[in-house]
């Protein structure tokens, strides 16, 4: 993974704070909240400012109750389920996100399809994991700061995603329930050690969803050896980004 570009080297980080991003972000907002897009819908720019959309499939992995469903809801700006109901199958959530490529200044819409599958459902039905793995672009490995075993099992989980059969998949570790520091079961030092040995970006989430924008930006710009956005671009588009328009359209057709 040595050839992964440095964070912020592919897309402009924190672009949602810049003025020139406003007209794009307005398309994914409605009354200051994130818009929920059906499958037949997508953010539409006026013809003169039309942009391409790049599709990514992201699998959320982690044991039951760590907060997979909550994370998907958080990233989509939806209400986070207050109680834990097991997910009994696969649920996908679509997140549209405008990005600006650093080099060319070109704007794209990322369409992140988050695949959330309940851990117990995965165990009970064999057909679920293969469909989650099929043509996946990135995996988020979740652990909970309040659940030590979920942290200890990480390297085991990540190990399953190495090797040639899986192909090139961007990986990211997410620590959930960071807001519950009173019940924190994973020391900061352990996290740092882990990050050093694995060399993966690590994101801490928890607490209220603020404006629904910060979390996605955090995810995409997540500091570490491979910012996720860069990792994603790298895994599919590769530097230099978006050279082949054909690549884009084939991705679009794929869904």
């Amino acid at each position: 993974m040595a050839d992964v570009p440095a964070p912020g080297s592919v897309v402009v980080s924190d672009w949602h704070r810049c003025k020139d991003s406003k007209e794009y972000f307005n398309k994914i907002l409605h009354k200051k909240r994130r818009k929920n897009f059906g499958l037949l819908e997508s953010p539409v720019m006026p013809p003169h400012a039309a942009v391409d959309t790049v599709h990514y499939k992201i699998f959320i992995s982690g044991k039951s109750g760590v907060g997979k469903t909550a994370l998907a809801a958080r990233l989509a700006g939806l209400n986070i389920p207050p109680v834990h109901y097991e997910t009994t199958g696969i649920e996908t959530t679509v997140v549209y996100w405008p990005v600006k490529l650093r080099e060319s200044g070109r704007v794209l819409f990322f369409r992140l399809q988050l695949w959330d599958c309940g851990e117990n459902a995965l165990r009970r039905f064999d057909h679920l994991l293969p469909s989650c793995k099929e043509q996946v672009d990135a995996v988020l490995f979740l652990f909970s700061f309040t659940d030590r075993p979920s942290f200890d099992d990480l390297s085991n989980q990540i190990g399953k995603w190495n090797g040639p059969s899986v192909g090139r998949v961007a990986k990211l570790v997410v620590g959930t329930k960071f807001d519950l520091f009173m019940h924190c079961d994973v020391a900061e030092r352990d996290v740092r050690d882990f990050q050093e040995t694995m060399g993966l970006p690590l994101l801490r989430v928890g607490g209220e969803v603020s404006d629904g924008l910060g979390d996605v930006a955090l995810l995409l710009n997540c500091p570490g050896r491979a910012a996720v956005a860069s990792g994603l671009c790298h895994s599919w588009i590769g530097p230099p980004p978006v050279t082949a328009g054909g690549r884009d359209s084939s991705l679009i057709q794929r869904s």
Binding site: N36, T69, A73, T92, D116
Partner: peptide, 10 residues
Amino acid sequence: ASGSASCDYP
């Protein structure tokens, strides 16, 4: 109600 885009439920 969860707002997800698609589901595959056994």
